[in-house]
């Protein structure tokens, strides 16, 4: 269905104002973009994390849709339980069929790390639900610790830039490809600056007859060390440097959604955020070179998968 931004923007937000997320947080922008195109009834599950703690402090509730939080690692299985109950009750005629949609939100810690097994199980069993990773590339809720989504060289409190070690020594887990390897109907990587792309992907994901997954880059001004008014520029730069390509895998077919006219060098990404500041020291040039090499390597692989070469 084509998206009319004016119309979509006029719909009542399902995540209401009054929550306690930080100014400039990428997560709330993404959640509102995603939920704005959900016209059917929807049930939301949320993993423990920033979005969860800042929208549900009892007795306040920022959500206008049914919402459940269970624990850190199990938003997927919790939602799968609700989805199974929905199917059971509809099949038995105990409740009417309402075409209800099921969406889980989890951060990169909940998704890449502690919750991966639960997600994998849900995907294999084929629950009809969308899992969205709000990927801000570290454990931001506990105060900026490294995750397997944190990129090479980034300084976090558990991969700090020190006298000897210049930030996180490892690259990052290729999660979107790992999810795609489950051969589910729809998998995508997206970012909030490309709003039409994200909304279209949401529509495709929810129309899929089975599980779907979208990995969305979510800048964190506190953790990335950029100004809170730069959030949207950040993901634009991520797409232009190709450190966060926008693509989708629909029924096994890989498709590139955005190819920059001119691929920007990774140093522009590095310079834009305080978490990489130490990499600007001449002694750490090799880390920037490694980062560029990893980005180039994955970009070339992606182009091949998407038939772009």
């Amino acid at each position: 269905m084509p998206i009319n931004l004016k119309e979509v923007a006029n719909r009542q937000d399902k995540l209401g104002p009054g929550h306690r997320m930080c100014a400039g947080c990428g997560e709330t922008i993404i959640v509102r973009e995603i939920l704005s195109v959900v016209e059917d009834p929807v049930v939301v599950a949320d993993a423990t994390g920033c979005l969860e703690v800042a929208t549900s402090i009892f007795p306040y509730n920022a959500w206008r849709v049914p919402w459940i939080h269970n624990a850190f690692e199990n938003a997927s299985s919790t939602l799968a339980g609700a989805e199974a109950m929905y199917r059971s009750l509809v099949r038995q005629g105990k409740i009417p069929e309402k075409n209800t949609k099921f969406i889980a939100f989890g951060g990169d810690g909940a998704t890449y790390d502690i919750g991966l097994q639960w997600i994998s199980g849900c995907l294999e069993r084929g629950h009809r639900m969308l899992y969205v990773c709000l990927n801000n590339e570290a454990y931001m809720n506990t105060g900026i610790q490294r995750s397997s989504a944190t990129p090479l060289g980034a300084s976090t409190t558990t991969s700090p830039a020190g006298e000897v070690i210049p930030g996180k020594p490892q690259w990052r887990k290729p999660l979107t490809a790992i999810i795609a390897a489950h051969k589910i109907p729809f998998v995508a990587q997206a970012a909030p600056h490309a709003w039409r792309d994200l909304m279209t992907k949401t529509q495709k994901a929810l129309a899929a007859d089975g599980p779907s997954f979208i990995n969305v880059l979510a800048p964190c001004p506190r953790g990335w060390r950029h100004d809170s008014n730069e959030t949207i520029q950040m993901t634009k730069l991520a797409a232009d440097t190709c450190i966060w390509p926008l693509f989708e895998v629909e029924s096994g077919v890989w498709k590139l959604n955005y190819k920059p006219k001119e691929k920007k060098p990774i140093i522009e990404w590095v310079k834009s955020q305080g978490r990489f500041r130490h990499l600007l020291q001449p002694a750490n040039q090799r880390v920037v070179d490694q980062l560029q090499a990893k980005v180039d390597e994955e970009w070339e692989e992606l182009l091949k998968l998407c038939g772009e070469t």
Partner: peptide
């Protein structure tokens, strides 16, 4: 039976799904 059976991948997932399913209402 009319039961929707979820053959989960661990007991943690079993109880997680039970929580979601029971909260869903059944």
């Amino acid at each position: 039976v009319d039961t929707e059976f979820i053959p989960v991948e661990s007991e943690h997932a079993a109880m997680s799904a039970c929580v979601g399913a029971a909260a869903a209402g059944g």
